[in-house]
Amino acid sequence: MRALLVVNPAATTTSARTRDVLAHALASDLKLEVAATEYRGHARDLARQAAEGGEIELVVALGGDGTVNEVVNGLLHNGPDPEGLPKLAVVPGGSTNVFARALGLPNDAVEATGALLDALRERSSRTVGLGLVSGTPGTEDEGVPARWFTFCAGLGFDAGVVGRVEQQREHGKRSTHALYIRQVMRQFLAEPNRRTGTITLERPGEDPVTDLVLTLVCNTSPWTYLGNRPIYASPRASFDTALDVLGLSRLSTAAVARYATQLLRSTPERGPEGKHATSLHDLTDFTLHSQAPLPFQVDGDHLGLRMSATFTGVRRALRVIV
């Protein structure tokens, strides 16, 4: 099998020596080409070339969730085709690795490589659903390029946290869970709309959900991890269904304390709930509108400010080796 290994040299938890060992192990079972990313978006470009070239059968992403997202967007540049496109494999190398862990892969890069090689020998794979977000027709965001996401997107509070973390990383800070917690607190103190939200969720044939402060769009569960603890914002979200949404209409001090506690205690059977929480399951098409520009993120990548975004849940989008 001809394969392309896309390596992010800046991956948080994988050293250069480990990457070399992993590449050597993969090359023992694959006709392997190795490409290191050199700029933001490079992994997307490499995966697109692999998909359009017609010779590569497998693309392996070695890096964090951002690298995986770029590879997925490159593979799906011309749309989903699970049987015709190269398959995807993931070796976790980031700080959280939500997508890889949601697939059931070990969080250690060496162990995950062993699991990948076993899956290749056993011809084990699955088709996963993904989310697609695009600009909303008739709005100022209409021309925004569409973007695939593997596990989550968000408009509002959580995206503001992501933006703050990225700013800290640009100043040399390491991406740690402690860093995220500090930025959550700073975003909460600076949040101007925590008592009256500006976001409305619209979906065909249903009444709109209004006055949301926070909207998390989940493609799988867990939503994220705090160390080794899985956090379930939308417990019923799955790679086998469309998209789930958790919306919160208030972020007062009491509400934040309540929902943070619920998230920390969340399980595959139970997530956040209450009179200010809205949970929606298996949505294929919906749009988020805001009365003011808000931070927007996709798979933990801050994409600036948006006033609207249109979401599509695409079942059976891509074949993954697991």
Rank of each mutant, 00 (worst) to 15 (best):
R2A: 13
L5T: 05
A10V: 07
T14M: 04
H24F: 05
A27W: 00
A36H: 12
T37F: 03
R40K: 08
A43H: 01
R48G: 06
G53K: 09
G53L: 10
L58M: 06
V59N: 10
A61N: 09
L62A: 07
N78E: 13
L85T: 07
P86G: 02
V91F: 14
G93K: 07
N97G: 11
A102Y: 03
G104H: 04
D108K: 03
E111S: 15
A115Q: 15
L117G: 07
L117H: 07
R121H: 13
S124C: 10
S125F: 10
T127V: 10
L130F: 04
L132S: 03
T136R: 05
P137R: 05
P137H: 05
D141Q: 05
G143C: 05
W148D: 12
W148P: 05
W148E: 09
T150A: 11
C152Q: 13
C152Y: 13
C152R: 12
L155W: 03
A159D: 02
V161F: 01
E166I: 02
Q167I: 04
Q168I: 01
K173H: 12
A178K: 02
R182Y: 01
V184W: 06
M185E: 14
A190Y: 01
R195D: 15
R203N: 07
E206N: 08
T210V: 13
L212I: 13
V217Q: 07
P222L: 00
Y225H: 09
N228D: 13
A233C: 01
P235Y: 06
A237S: 08
D240Q: 09
G247S: 03
S249Q: 12
R250Q: 12
R250A: 13
S252R: 00
A254I: 11
A257Q: 10
T261W: 15
T261H: 12
Q262L: 02
Q262Y: 05
T267Y: 03
G271C: 04
G274I: 05
T278S: 08
H281L: 14
D282N: 15
T284E: 15
T284F: 11
H289R: 14
H289E: 13
S290G: 11
H302L: 02
R306E: 09
T310D: 10
F311T: 01
T312M: 14
L318W: 01
V322E: 15
V322H: 15
